[in-house]
Design a protein around this nucleic acid. Sequence first.
RNA 1: GGGCAGUUAGCUCAGCGGGAGAGCGCCCGCUUCACACGCGGGAGGUCACUGGUUCAAUCCCAGUACUGCCCACCA
Length: 799
Amino acid sequence: MTGVLHMGHALNNTIQDLLMRWRRMAGDVTEWICGTDHAGIATQAVVEKDLAAQGISRKELGREEFVRRVWEWREVYGGQIIAQLKRLGCTLDYDRERFTMDEGYARAVQRVFVDLYEKGHVYRDRYMVNWDPGLGSAISDLEVEERETTDKLISIAYPLTDGSGEIVVATVRPETMLGDTGVAVSPADDRYRDLIGKTITLPLVGRELPIVADEHVDPEFGTGALKVTPAHDPADFEIGRRHGLEAINVIGEDGRMTAEAGERYAGLTPAEASKAVVEDLREQGFLRAEEDYTHVVPFSHRSGARVEPLVSLQWFCDMTELAKPAIAAVEDERVRFHPATWGGVYLRWMNEIRPWCLSRQLWWGHQLPVWYRGEEVYVGLDAPEGEGWERDPDVLDTWFSSALWPFATLGWPDPTPELERFYPTQVLSTARDIIFLWVARMVMMGLEYMDDVPFSDVYIHSVVQAPDGRRMSKSLGTGVDPLELIDVHGADALRFGLLMMSSTQDVRFNEERVRQGRQLATKLWNAARLVIDRGGRSLSAAPEARTLADRWIASRVAAAIEESDELLGSFQLSRYAAGMYRLVFDDYCDWYLELLKAGEATPEMAGYVLEQLLALLHPATPFVTEECWARLPGSDGLMATHPPARAPGPRDPGAEDEFALLKEVVTALRAYRSAQDVPSRAELEVSIEADRAVPVSERALAALTRATLRDDPAPGARVVGVGFGRLLVHDPSADPDADRRRIEAAIAEAENELARARRQLANERFIERAPDHLVEAEREKERRYAAELEALRAELGSS
RNA sequence: GGGCAGUUAGCUCAGCGGGAGAGCGCCCGCUUCACACGCGGGAGGUCACUGGUUCAAUCCCAGUACUGCCCACCA
C-alpha cells in the first residue's frame, strides 16, 4: 500500500477486526496476517515522482540504485498504514508482518512462475497487449477501463490495384492506416463478393493489400468494409491471424510513430500523425468523409493514459486449466460468496477467462526468473550455468504475487506449522472491485498449490461513496479522511458508524452514523459509571433474578446473544450494530437502569448484564468496552480475551409479557401527561381496570412516570385506553376540552382498527385459508377494540 | 450490446408474504441525583409505476421508467 488509510480500508479492516474479535472471544485460535503488497506500479510511480521533483530520472540512477531508493521509501512510509490500523483498533498479528517482497515470499513467487512454466501454462508470445504509454508498460485487461469518448470518424478511399474502383473504409485512428495489411469484408456481403481475393493499394504507403472475407465484419456498419491493422487493434489482430496478414507496428512502445510508419511520420505522436495523415489524404484526394463519432475507448486505470493496443513480446499465463477447479469450487459451494450474487459474477468471468499478461516493464517488483542467450530461453530459480546469459529485465504483475497470499504468508513452500494450522482460512472480506484481480486468482492458486480452497467464505462489503453519491476519491476532492474522524469522534465511533453503513449495497458516507457510534460509546460509559456506583461487579456465575425487571432484562440479553451470533455469522453487520444500539439505549438504559435506580432491579443483575453487554459490543467498539471492563470491580484480564456473552438464563416469555404490561401502562400515562400538559413532576393517581392481572409495582410506576396506584377510581377520573383494559386517571384539574379532543382521537383510532378487523373477518376465504392463529388474532382484535370503543364512548358521553 | 443491483419518512439507510422501522432533521415538554453526546411525547411514507400470483403483496413473478455498477474486439 502506498498511501494512507482511506475509508475503504477503514471499513474493510473494521469488518475484519470485528470478525476476528468475535471468533477470538468464542475461543477460536485466530490468525490475522498483517501484511502489505509491494504495489509495483503505484509505488514505482510515487518514487519516480519524488525523484523527478529533484530533477533525477529513474534511468539516470540505474536499476539497482532505483530499487534501493524504493526500499528506502518503504522504510519510511511502509509502517504508516500499520500505525493507522492500530489506531483503528485492529488486532492483527503485528509480530508476524509479511510483505510480498520479503525474501521467503519472493522465493515462493519465483517458484510458482517456474512451475507454471514447466506445466506449460506460462509462455512467451508476441501478442496484442494493452500498452500504457504513460507507464511505459503492458498492463492486464483488468487494469483497463472503458471511457466514452468522441472522436472523428474518418472515411478513406482505398483504390483497387487494378484500377477498377475503390473501397471506402472508416476509422477513428487514421494514423494506424500506415500499418494496414489488409481489408476485410463480410463473406455475406454481395457488394464486395467479386472483390474478395483482389488487392488494393494503400494510399500514402503504396503497399498492396489483399481483400479478405471475415465473419467479424458487420455489413451494416459504415461501408461494410474494414481496414485491418493487426498490430494496433485487438479485433484486427485476430483477423490478421486468421488470414495470415502481417502485423506491422507503426506505433512504438515509447508512444511514438516508428520507422515502419515511414520517414514522414516516424517520431510523431499518434495524435500528430493522425493530423498529418488526414492532411495528406485530403491533398491526395483519398479523404471521403469526416464526422463526429462517440464510442468507448480503453484508458489505463493506472496512469490515466489512453491505452495503445499493440503487439508486443510478453509473458502470459493461460488460465483455462487453472480456472476449471476454481469454477467447480464455487459451483459446489466450497467457496461461498456473501451476498451470493457475487458468486455469479465470479463464475461468468471465470468461464470466459482470457490469458493473463504477467510481465510489466517496471523495476520495482519480482523480476522474472528468466534468462536469454541468443535464441535460448532459460526459466529457473537460479541463474543458468555458463557465460553470456542475460536476465529478462521485466517484473511480474503485483497481483501475481498477491495471488499466493493465503499460503505464501504462512511459509509455503516449506511445510510450516502455521501452514498446517491456518490453511485453508475461513473468511475473506473485500470490496467487489477486487473479485477478479485478487479473489479469483487466490482461489486458482490455492487449488493449484495447496490442493484446497484458500477460504470458505467471501464477504463482499459495501462501497462507501462520498456523501453526494460520487466516488470517494482524492483527486475529485470527495474523500473523507477516516483518521480525522477518529480524531473528532474516536475510533469506536468510526467503527460503529461504518458498521451501521455496511450492508449489501453501496452507501453514501454519513457522518451521522459515526456520531451515533460516539453516542453509543458515551452512553455505555455513563451506564457503566452508574452501575459500578450502585455496586455492580463482575460475577463468576449468573445472579438470581429477583425482580420482574431482572427477569426481563435477562431474557432480553438471552435474545440479543442469539441474534447477534446469527447476524455476525451471516455478515449482517448493520443489523447487528443497530440491534446493539437499541439494546443499550432502549432496553438497558431507558427501562432497566431507570428501574435499578428505583430499587426495582438488583445491582448484581445490573453488573452481570453490563459485563455481557460489553462482551457483545466489544467486537464493534473495543476501546470503550475494554475501558469499562477494566473499571468494573471483579474484572480480570482483557475484554478482548473474555469469553463470549453469556445469558443470565434462558429466554423468559412470561417476564417479557408481564414487562410489556408495565411498559404499556407507563407509556399510556406519559402520553396522557403530554397531551394534557400535566407537568412531569406532578403526581398522577391512577387505578387500573383490566381483564387480567396487571402486576405493576408501585415503585416502578413512581420511578418511571410519577404515578401512584389507588384501588378505586376517583370520581370523575379520566379514561385512558390500553390494550388490556383501561386506566382511570385522577386529574381534577384536567382541561375538559383537551380531554375531549384526546378521547375523540382515541375513538377515531379504535374505530379504524375495528373496521379493519371486521373487514378481514368478513372475508370468507380469509377464514377458510389463513392460518388459524391469524384468524383468532383478528377475532381478538375485534373484541378488544369493540370494548375499548364502548368505554371511550361512555366516557365521552359523561364528560 | 449483454449482465447484475437499486428505487421505503425531509436526509442517510434498515426491513421484506399477514396492520410500515432506525438515526438525524422537524414540533411540544423536561437542568428527573449515569448521561442535554441526555429523557419523555408527537408530526411525517397510496414502500417508483403497470399488470399477475395469493384469503392476504412494500415483500413473490412479469413488464415499464429512472439510477448505479460490472462485462463486451462493430471499425
